[in-house]
Design a protein around this nucleic acid. Structure first.
Length: 587
RNA sequence: GGCCCGAUAGUUCAACGGAUAGAAUAGAAGUUUCCUAAACUUUAGAUCCAGGUUCGAUUCCUGGUCGGGCUACCA
């Protein structure tokens, strides 16, 4: 539809005003709903060459295009805006034949894309910030896949380091043989408890040192506990069997906990990397860079890269004692990932607090001569904050992921019971429903916001189930299904060639799906799909309230409306899946 | 200090440089003998400030204000 219009506009501009413009470069807007028309062509940019006023120019173009394109019905002009309307029959044909849900590859450049997301530390349970990461990461993978790319979902687990040793030591000293089983705690929460306990004990010890006159900052890092933690880290690195054994045990507990949380959130991975296996990587690459002269060494032996030419700073890559820093291992891991998959693009879903880190990583890889550096992309997103500020596990200022999902479930159950529409549903069906509604509301809440913006979460105000919410979208789907349960589309009936305003709006909206998917995929923005989903539900409800489906004026109108209902449900399911939201049959 | 990001109705969010800046929520007023009222309809309410570019700026540029982040031989 659009193609023929673009061609006609291009031809008309050429023949009327001698303007050369490629059909692909013609820009059409969706006509705003307060005006009549489907697509709008803005003529202002061409006035200089047409040498006529905006209305006159638009008039002439409209005349030419409508007579050239048989599918067009009419046009109207408002100032410099040429609004073009297709014949209703064209829309109906499109609706009948359109394959809304299929995977798109028509953009012509399918790529192999690795997306790293989640990447948790194994010393504490997941909180709301992680939930945003997981939901965003999973969603963008779904979107990229739907757009026709090949996607590899990876999780780089941060399973080693000083913070892991803290929870290990804390458990060793104060655990008294307790286990997740004996305490009835989920594994990750169990380990997290000891991580928090470490901090408590460490503060006590630090306070004593301060009493003895030590500087508070210094004291924190020089307690007996901290000394021992560092000792444990050394032993861990030396493969001390006792330490390693405790480490595997505790990580095992955490993994059990994480896996159940992941399952519940509905996220998954194709590949897990573990820092314990990658933390030594990268040194070789740094040494290569040193010999090729891209890096330099200070007198104390530390190795640096000077990125001032790229507008960044100088960055250390190897300490004077020859050990790695975080950046070193990220360089090594980037290489490992590339060797494993040879992907065209490597996406890191990581919070915006690490914007600088990823600029440096990319620039460094480039300097080291790695062509794949161009494919490195940091999908940065804003932090989730409480009214009092950032989430902080150690200070207990967190919204725990599991607790939050429980609360969402409970609220969903409560609201559903208030509605009283679920009579006759089995207990396990109801359980699934509450889960779908609770998680749906949560995911939509997190995804509808542009990723670059931070999200303020106020625990005092629970996540909504009314208005612009996941629930509204799910409700609309259930509404569609309730109709489609009683009747289905009969393809043998000839459809009408007239559309009511609300019907036309829905069809035109379905037509935007391709553009929206492309926008979401190229901008890495699930929020685009969330908004599209909301619009879909809104338009359907508006249509639904205005026109009866089952009691339509005639059989062919009825069939058209059933088809519209079917398409709506389909769109909600497909786009919902892109956000990781499930659509209930009844609610 | 330097660098990065954000700022839109009371609140939470939209708006490839285009028309009268859209929604939701909170407020006011309506809609159910009829397919799910977790819905629909009506109403009131906003672009941080000052310049600049443009036929046209919430959008792009410059400067400022406010908020957040980064700026470790931490991860």
């Amino acid at each position: 539809m659009i193609d023929s219009l673009n061609k006609a506009l291009s031809a008309a501009l050429h023949s009327l005003y001698d303007i050369q413009i490629n059909p692909d470069d013609i820009r059409l807007d969706i006509t705003r709903k307060e005006f009549e028309g489907d697509f709008t062509f803005v003529v202002f940019p061409y006035l200089r060459q047409s040498k006529k006023g905006p209305e006159h120019t638009a008039q002439e173009l409209g005349e030419a295009v409508v007579s050239a394109v048989e599918q067009l019905e009419k046009y109207n002009v408002v100032k410099g805006f040429l609004n073009l309307s297709f014949k209703s029959s064209v829309w109906v044909d499109w609706l009948t034949s359109a394959n809304i849900t299929s995977i798109r590859t028509a953009h012509g450049s399918p790529r192999k894309i690795m997306v790293e997301y989640s990447s948790p530390n194994t010393n504490k349970p997941l909180h709301l910030g992680h939930v945003r990461n997981n939901v965003l990461g999973f969603s963008i993978c779904q979107i990229l896949q739907q757009y026709g790319h090949e996607v590899i979902k990876v999780n780089l687990i941060n399973d080693r380091g000083i913070h892991i040793c803290k929870s290990m030591l804390s458990y060793h000293l104060f655990g008294d043989g307790e286990t997740p089983e004996s305490s009835g705690l989920k594994g990750d929460h169990f380990v997290g408890k000891y991580y928090v306990l470490f901090d408590v004990k460490n503060r006590e010890q630090a306070a004593k040192l301060v009493e003895q006159g030590m500087d508070p900052e210094e004291a924190k890092n020089n307690t007996p506990l901290m000394e021992q933690t560092r000792e444990w880290l050394r032993k861990w690195e030396e493969q001390d069997s006792e330490i390693r054994s405790l480490w595997s045990t505790m990580n095992g507990w955490v993994y059990d906990g994480f896996h159940s949380t992941y399952d519940r959130m509905g996220v998954s991975f194709d590949k897990f990397y573990h820092e314990s296996e990658t933390y030594l990587l990268g040194k070789d690459l740094v040494m290569e860079g040193l010999s090729s002269g891209e890096l330099y060494q200070k007198e104390d032996g530390s190795v640096w890269i000077d990125l001032t030419a790229e507008g960044l700073d100088q960055k250390i890559l190897l300490r004077s004692d020859g050990t790695s820093v975080y950046m070193t291992q990220d360089i090594g891991t980037a290489q490992l990932k590339y060797d494993d998959y040879h992907m065209d693009q490597s996406v890191y879903v990581v919070g915006n607090e690490q914007d600088y880190h990823f600029q440096v990583l990319k620039a460094t890889l480039k300097r080291l001569g790695k062509a794949y550096a161009d494919g490195v992309f940091h999908m940065s997103y804003g932090m989730v904050e409480l009214p009092e500020g950032k989430l902080k596990t150690r200070e207990g200022k967190v919204v725990d992921a599991d607790d939050l999902m429980d609360e969402m479930y409970a609220t969903a159950k409560e609201r559903t019971n208030e509605q009283g529409k679920t009579d006759g549903m089995e207990a396990d069906e109801l359980n699934t429903l509450y889960e779908q509604l609770g998680l749906g509301a949560l995911k939509y809440f997190l995804l509808r916001v542009d990723p670059v913006k931070r999200i303020l979460f106020n625990p005092a105000e629970s996540i909504d189930f009314q208005g612009n919410t996941g629930t509204f979208i799910q409700y609309t789907h259930a509404r569609c299904q309730s109709i489609l349960r009683s009747i289905s589309f009969d393809g043998s009936v000839t459809l009408p060639d007239h559309l009511e305003a609300e019907e036309r709006a829905l069809v035109a909206h379905f037509h935007q799906y391709d553009d929206k998917l492309a926008e979401a995929a190229t901008n890495f923005s699930p929020a685009v799909m969330a908004n599209y989903l909301y619009e879909t539900a809104k338009l359907f409800n508006s249509f639904y309230n205005q026109h009866s489906i089952l009691k339509a004026e005639s059989e062919n109108i009825k069939q058209l409306r059933i088809l519209l209902t079917q398409r709506t449900a389909e769109t909600l399911r497909v786009c919902g899946r892109l956000l990781g939201m499930e659509m209930p049959e009844r609610m």
